[in-house]
């Protein structure tokens, strides 16, 4: 149960193709995100909440489970994770603009409140941490179905775990506690990823918790706790893989605390100058997860400048196209507000 910090070097090698794919998704997410900040500054959109700085934590985790099949409960910052699971830049842009056909909520919710039944991404509210006990409930359902004979435990076409994300501040909620407790009591196939960016809007972690790591608390629930460098995509991938294997093998739940940083304001409504120094932000910008991974890949000979140029051009094309199509799409009609209050009775 003890917390240990994992190092990427201990783990088996990751194929060059997969490493390049990870890099690509981190880059795509970043460029999409930066464009969205720009659209906000241009007054074209109402709101943005960003994944910048969190890409390694999210992409590393997302490549580790059976994406599109295992239940995923991402939180509002999980743009990069959701792109890896299978949401598209256009899906995201439709949300940002609140346009018709937005797949998460039909543009009823604010942007970045993910949902996609085809990908088993379960809908989120804005009320932080509420998704944690839901994920435990879905993990409970998986174990239940296997026990009562509704599901073959080794069938990879069925969900075999539930993975949930939230920020470190949100672990102060009772919802987190109760979800973790169920996961522990029933030793569920459950993974909680805490993206610890050191702030909940303006409030630093030492005002949320008397212990320095969220993962320190995992032992109290009978959950394995791990702290990982969330800006190291390969380390993130490895610890999540380990947690996934544990879940698939019936060995119980894992809490992964990814230490990271958000070098941008909390959201487009925030001004972070009131609660942290520019020096601190600059220091973390030097630890940027994309630059860091680029260096690793370049030095290993897995990525050339030509590769980078090609990916940058491709990302720009995709983002341009997503923006253009979202702008051209109409709003859903006003009366769409009346839909989907009750699911129809099954006949």
């Amino acid at each position: 149960m003890a917390v240990k910090t994992q190092k990427a070097q201990q783990a088996p090698p990751v194929s060059p193709e997969l490493q390049r794919e990870m890099y690509w998704y981190m880059l795509l997410s970043r460029r999409l995100d930066e464009r969205t900040w720009m659209l906000h500054r241009q007054g074209k959109i109402a709101f943005h909440i960003s994944a910048i700085g969190h890409e390694a934590a999210q992409v590393g985790a997302a490549f580790a489970f059976n994406r599109g099949v295992d239940y995923a409960y991402p939180y509002y910052r999980d743009l990069a994770m959701c792109l890896v699971i299978g949401m598209t830049p256009l899906d995201f842009m439709l949300g940002v603009y609140g346009k018709e056909g937005e797949p998460s909520s039909g543009a009823r919710q604010m942007p970045s409140h993910w949902s996609n039944k085809k990908l088993n991404i379960v809908s989120q509210s804005a009320s932080v941490a509420t998704q944690v006990p839901h994920a435990a409930g879905s993990a409970f359902a998986i174990k239940y179905r296997q026990k009562v004979g509704l599901q073959d435990p080794n069938d990879p076409t069925q969900p075999r775990l539930a993975i949930v994300c939230l920020g470190e501040g949100s672990t102060s909620q009772g919802e987190w506690h109760e979800g973790m407790n169920w996961a522990g009591v029933h030793q569920l196939p459950f993974i909680c990823i805490v993206q610890n960016n050191h702030y909940a809007i303006s409030v630093p972690f030492d005002q949320q918790s008397a212990v320095p790591n969220v993962a320190d608390r995992a032992a109290a629930y009978g959950v394995k706790g791990v702290v990982v460098d969330g800006n190291d995509v390969l380390a993130m991938y490895h610890v999540t893989r380990e947690a996934v294997e544990r879940a698939y093998n019936g060995e119980g739940p894992t809490l992964i605390e990814a230490k990271t940083y958000r070098p941008v304001p909390h959201s487009s409504d925030d001004d972070d100058r009131s609660y942290r120094s520019r020096e601190e932000v600059e220091e973390w910008k030097r630890k940027d997860p994309i630059l860091r991974f680029q260096k690793v890949l370049t030095e290993a000979g897995l990525l050339t400048q030509a590769d980078i140029d090609e990916m940058e051009a491709r990302a720009k094309r995709i983002v341009d196209e997503a923006q253009k199509r979202a702008e051209e799409t109409p709003y859903p009609p006003g009366h769409a507000a009346l839909g989907d209050v009750y699911a129809p009775l099954e006949s």
């Binding site: 239940y71 379960v122 509420t130 006990p133 839901h134 994920a135 435990a136 409930g137 879905s138 993990a139 409970f140 359902a141 998986i142 239940y144 179905r145 969900p159 539930a162 009772g174 919802e175 109760e178 979800g179 407790n181 169920w182 009591v185």
Partner: peptide, 20 residues
Amino acid sequence: SPLAELSIVAIGIGAAVAGL
């Protein structure tokens, strides 16, 4: 269940969306 109503309901929600 544990003595915790929030999660009695929340576990139910998570199990229900997962088909139970």
